[in-house]
Design a binder for these strands. Structure first.
Lengths: 236, 236
DNA sequence: AATACAAAAAATCTCGAAAATTTATTGACA
DNA sequence: TGTCAATAAATTTTCGAGATTTTTTGTATT
């Protein structure tokens, strides 16, 4: 009993919902990468990782391999793992690809969505709005909360799209965008009213105005790229 | 010396180009899944895998985790891995998603492609044609060769597309399609002239007729779904 | 000084066995 | 006979140490 509980306590996944150490390590490392805590390009040495995340080498390798599949980590045979690099070019490319996928998924979602979808969407928007008000203080927990609810809102927008593959692709691209947002736009930009943008997309979706909703969503996705471009573009 | 070479011989990756046992196991298992040798839905027990592929558990887990990222394998926490299931619905969904991505990538590729791209394309088509002639005998090696050259041709078609993300998404979707083709259409269908379809796409691409090439490619992608639908559709 | 090679150090990769979990079997009880 | 709990078996998950490879350091030679 005491042995069991001691071991269990020491090895118990620290991430809620994680059913294995691999999953817990995966979730924590992913969080730290999206966060910027593990900076783009950083070499991920096993000694450091073992100390930081408290799991063995093979467990770490499996967690990292998952992240390679999501393109948050890169690996070079016999030369280990690194946090994936970022660049403005990559973000521009990513944004274009995400627009293509997300707009098509939204189009289908609005067409197929029923009352229950509308309900979930209104709920997700409400939860997002609540945390948007409190935002700005810069607390990491609040930022985490915002990102989670923002993700929920965008996922719910396309939830009624019947294509599993489209939604799978979207998930990967959205997560990539999330990292760029969090790393580059730590502070809130006063020149932008994100809440209003979300509200406009929500209204168009509820009104079943497919073309308007898709146009607004595309503009919404583009906004972050435009912001980043202005800030980081090489002086021509 | 003798110890070293014996171990080295035993552990040397059997897959050409594989720089680690993980990569070799990954490549071999992937081949067997695309092949149908490891059937859809099959439970992948470690004892069986260790015997079959001759590597340890953690090595196998890492290889399987890669395949989960490519959606060829599914995993359930604490309940192991399985070969991903197949269904007509999934293939229909996959085909639609692939058309969206591949057609857009082809559009950009034709616009951006230079003389060197044209050369590579003509070469890939030629190599594909050569193996198409010999096909039909049903030899597994020849089928492997055909699939490789077919993949090369389709990859080269969109190679000049500047979007890394679009090509990344396309890679995943194309590999999925490959499994459906190989599993369900083991034999050559006489009612279809695949060579002529490829030739038509090639000609349109070389003529820089974007719309025609995209339309032909979309039809080409759709053909396999139509064939499978007719064969396996539930009798209404 | 620059280059090439050898030895040492550091890092990754891999295995096998132990720990933890799930699944199957057995036996008690109504 | 059917259900439930306890036990046993099967399976997955995890660790840590050893094997392998890469990188750094040191030394000799030109």
């Amino acid at each position: 009993m005491e042995k069991n509980s001691a071991v269990a306590a020491g090895r118990q996944p620290k991430v809620v919902g994680a059913r294995s150490l691999v999953e817990a390590a995966y979730a924590t490392i992913r969080h730290d990468i999206l966060d910027g805590t593990l900076a783009p390009g950083l070499k991920l040495r096993f000694e450091m990782l073992r100390e930081r995340y408290g799991v063995g080498a093979s467990t770490l390798r499996e967690a990292l391999t998952r992240l390679v599949g999501e393109a948050l980590v890169t690996s070079e045979e016999q030369r280990g793992f690194r946090v994936a690099e970022v660049s403005l070019d990559d973000f521009a490319d990513l944004t274009r690809a995400r627009k293509l996928i997300e707009v098509e998924a939204l189009r289908q979602s609005i067409i197929f969505g029923d009352d229950s979808w509308e309900g979930a969407l209104v709920g997700a928007f409400h939860r997002l709005s609540k945390v948007e008000e409190k935002l700005g203080s810069g607390s990491p927990e609040l930022r985490d909360e915002f990102e989670e609810r923002n993700r929920d809102f965008h996922y719910t927008l396309i939830a009624a799209c019947p294509s599993r593959w489209l939604k799978h692709m979207h998930g990967i691209l959205f997560q990539q965008s999330e990292r760029y947002r969090r790393i580059s736009l730590a502070a809130k930009d006063e020149s932008r009213d994100v809440h209003a943008e979300h509200k406009a997309v929500l209204d168009a979706a509820l009104a079943r105005d497919v073309d308007l909703a898709c146009r607004l969503e595309a503009e919404h996705i583009d906004k972050t790229l435009q912001l980043l471009s202005r800030r980081f573009a090489p002086k021509a």
